[in-house]
Amino acid sequence: MKSATTAQYDLIRGIWRENPVLIHLLGLCPALAVTNTVANSLAMGLATFFVLMGSSLLVSTFKRFIPHEVRISAYILIIATFVTIADLVLAAVVPEIHKALGAFIALIVVNCMILGRQEAFASKRPVSRAALDATGTGIGFLIAMLMMGSVRELLGNGTLLGYSVFGAGFEPWIIMILPPGGFLTLGVFLLAMGWWRGRTEGAQARVRRWPHGVATRRAA
């Protein structure tokens, strides 16, 4: 029972409560740079997911053989390998998206979210838990990317995944597909997250103060 909850927690933690982009503010470079369309966000999210999963599995498997002194070099080497593979595969399979993402695929290697998960989690946990953590974090990153991409493509181009939403007469908000649109969208999301967290934490504080609920207090 106990281990089941741990496993569940490993999996769901990264998706929302510790979302890498929206809560930890990691991986902002791709989140700002390539989320101008849903397709680009999806490709970047999946590529990052692949790199994170591959690296976590390898790091967790070989953690005993990697000496502490060279661990960062070894992690970067492993991450860079998967990034290069992702780069080549994207270029061969979806060249248009590869062109749109440009240098940002290669830059996955310096996505601190990935190195962070190796250092903080995969290098200290069994392979199964590392896989769950990578899945959760990867999905969390993908969700954040898709949220940004949907808003920006919808307002900036009037489409979602290339399908017209508002019809032909739509006036695109050009700013949304330009870099400032990324900052604006992310800013609004962070604002909303902060507001939401403030509310829930406020509610938790109230619960701590009156563990039996506000109703009890009123009754008393």
Partner: peptide, 23 residues
């Protein structure tokens, strides 16, 4: 350790490159 890791990484990349390059 680093040499072995680098060798494996290189091997893996070469395999993928051989597949991807013609495409």
């Amino acid at each position: 350790t680093l040499a072995a890791a680098g060798g494996m990484a290189g091997l893996l990349i070469v395999v993928v490159f051989e597949w991807a390059e013609p495409r």
